[in-house]
C-alpha cells in the first residue's frame, strides 16, 4: 500500500500536531483544575499565603513560605551536589574509562534510577538518618560549625538528609543524559584537540564539555525538575517542620512533602484548598526555574561551539 507523498505528509503532520495539542490540553486542564481546587484558599489568604510562615490546620491559618524555602533550598543544593557526580561519571564512562566496561558502568549508574523512591525513603530513615546524627553531624559541627549552616542540634531528620537523598536520586538523570550528549559530539572535535597537543583534560574541556554545555544545562534542568517534585523519599526524612532555619541540620519541609503528608488526612475544605494552593504555587516556581535555565542556555549559546 503506497500513500502519495503529499497525503502522507499532511496526515503525518496533522497527527503530530494532534498529539502535541492533546498533551498541551491535558496539562492545561491539570493546571486549571488545581487552581480551581485552591479557590477557597486563594480568596481567603490571597498573596499573604506566599509570605506567611504559619501552618496551623487546627486554627485554619495557612502560609506557604517555609515550604517554598524548603523546596528551593533542597532542590538547588541537591542539584549542586549531584552535578559534579553526574557529569564526571559521564565523562569517565564515555571518555576516560576502559571501553569494554563502558556499557556495564553506564547501566550500573542507571540502576540508581531503578530504585523506587519509597526504598530510598526507607533506607534514608534506617540508615542515612542515624549516620547523619551519629557520624556526620559531629564532623560538620567540628570543622564547619562557624557557618550558620551547620549549627544547632541534629537528630538526623533534617534538610541535610533530604538534600543528600535527593542528590543521590538525581545523579542517574544527569549522568545518563550527559552520556548521550557526550557521545554525540563529533569525533572530529576531539581529534582536532588532540592534534593540537591537548592533554586529556584539555581535550575534554574544549572538545566535549564546551559543545555540550546547552545539553548539560538541559539535563540539569530535568534533574532539578525531579528534585522539585520528589515526594516519597523526602517525606520520610525531612521532618515536615514548617520552619525556616538557616541550619541544614534542622528539620524542614518541602511543598511536595507537606502535600504527601497532609492530603490524605485533610479534614476541612480550607485545608485541602490550601494544599492545592501550594501545588499551584509549585507550578509557578517550576515555570520560573525552567525559564531561568532557558535564559542561561540563550546566554551561553554564542560562547559555545554551535552545531
Amino acid at each position: 500500500m503506497k500513500l502519495t507523498t503529499r497525503l502522507e505528509e499532511r496526515l503525518g503532520i496533522s497527527l503530530i500536531y494532534i498529539c502535541v495539542s492533546v498533551v498541551v490540553v491535558l496539562i492545561f486542564v491539570m493546571i486549571v483544575l488545581l487552581f480551581k481546587m485552591s479557590f477557597i484558599s486563594m480568596s481567603k489568604f490571597g498573596l499573604n499565603f506566599i509570605t506567611s510562615t504559619t501552618w496551623n490546620p487546627v486554627e485554619e491559618q495557612f502560609g506557604a513560605l517555609p515550604f517554598i524555602y524548603g523546596t528551593i533550598l533542597t532542590s538547588i543544593l541537591s542539584l549542586t551536589i549531584a552535578l559534579p557526580f553526574g557529569i564526571l561519571s559521564a565523562i569517565f564512562v564515555t571518555e576516560l574509562g576502559p571501553k569494554r566496561l563502558r556499557n556495564i558502568l553506564g547501566t550500573s549508574i542507571d540502576l540508581i534510577a531503578a530504585i523506587p523512591s519509597i526504598v530510598f525513603g526507607m533506607w534514608g530513615l534506617f540508615y542515612l538518618v542515624p549516620f547523619i546524627r551519629d557520624t556526620l553531624t559531629p564532623i560538620l559541627t567540628k570543622f564547619l560549625g562557624f557557618l550558620p549552616l551547620f549549627q544547632g542540634s541534629s537528630f538526623g531528620i533534617s534538610i541535610l538528609a533530604a538534600t543528600l537523598i535527593l542528590s543521590i536520586m538525581i545523579i542517574p538523570t544527569i549522568s545518563s543524559l550527559c552520556r548521550e550528549i557526550f557521545l554525540s559530539v563529533p569525533v572530529t572535535y576531539k581529534e582536532a584537540a588532540l592534534a593540537l597537543g591537548a592533554t586529556p583534560w584539555e581535550k575534554i574541556k574544549f572538545a566535549v564539555l564546551k559543545p555540550s554545555l546547552t545539553g548539560i544545562v538541559g539535563a540539569a534542568g530535568l534533574a532539578l525538575a525531579r528534585a522539585l517534585g520528589e515526594t516519597m523519599a523526602v517525606v520520610m526524612v525531612i521532618g515536615n517542620s514548617p520552619q525556616i532555619s538557616l541550619s541544614l541540620l534542622a528539620p524542614g519541609a518541602t511543598m511536595a512533602s507537606i502535600l504527601a503528608n497532609e492530603y490524605a488526612e485533610a479534614t476541612t475544605d480550607l485545608h485541602l484548598a490550601s494544599l492545592c494552593y501550594m501545588a499551584s504555587l509549585l507550578f509557578i516556581i517550576t515555570m520560573i526555574v525552567n525559564s531561568a535555565s532557558h535564559f542561561i542556555i540563550k546566554y551561553f549559546k554564542p560562547k559555545a561551539f554551535a552545531r
Partner: peptide
C-alpha cells in the same frame, strides 16, 4: 495547639 489530625 489544640487537637486535630494535623497541627502546628
Amino acid at each position: 495547639p489544640g487537637s486535630g489530625k494535623a497541627l502546628s
